[in-house]
Simulated scan of single mutants.
Amino acid sequence: MKDYAKKFYKSKAWKKCRTSYFASKYGLCERCAGPGKIVHHVKYITPENITDPNITLNHGNLELLCQDCHNKEHHERYNATAYGLMFDINGDLVRK
Rank of each mutant, 00 (worst) to 15 (best):
F8V: 08
K10A: 15
S11D: 06
K12I: 14
A13N: 05
A13K: 04
W14F: 07
W14H: 04
C17I: 10
T19W: 00
S20M: 04
S20A: 14
Y21R: 03
Y21L: 07
Y21T: 10
F22S: 06
A23L: 15
K25W: 03
R31S: 10
R31L: 12
R31H: 10
R31C: 12
R31I: 14
C32Q: 11
A33P: 00
A33N: 15
A33M: 06
P35I: 13
G36R: 05
K37F: 02
H40N: 15
H41F: 12
V42H: 00
Y44C: 08
Y44L: 14
Y44P: 00
I45H: 01
I45W: 01
P47G: 10
P47A: 04
N49C: 05
D52G: 05
N54I: 04
N54V: 07
T56S: 10
L57A: 11
H59Q: 09
H59K: 12
E63T: 09
E63P: 00
E63L: 14
L64I: 01
L64Q: 12
L65F: 01
Q67N: 13
C69G: 09
N71H: 04
N71D: 15
E76H: 09
R77Q: 14
R77Y: 06
Y78N: 13
A80V: 08
A82Y: 14
G84T: 13
L85M: 14
D88A: 05
I89V: 08
N90C: 03
N90V: 01
G91D: 07
G91C: 12
D92C: 09
L93Q: 06
L93N: 01
L93G: 07
L93F: 04
R95G: 10
R95S: 14
K96F: 11
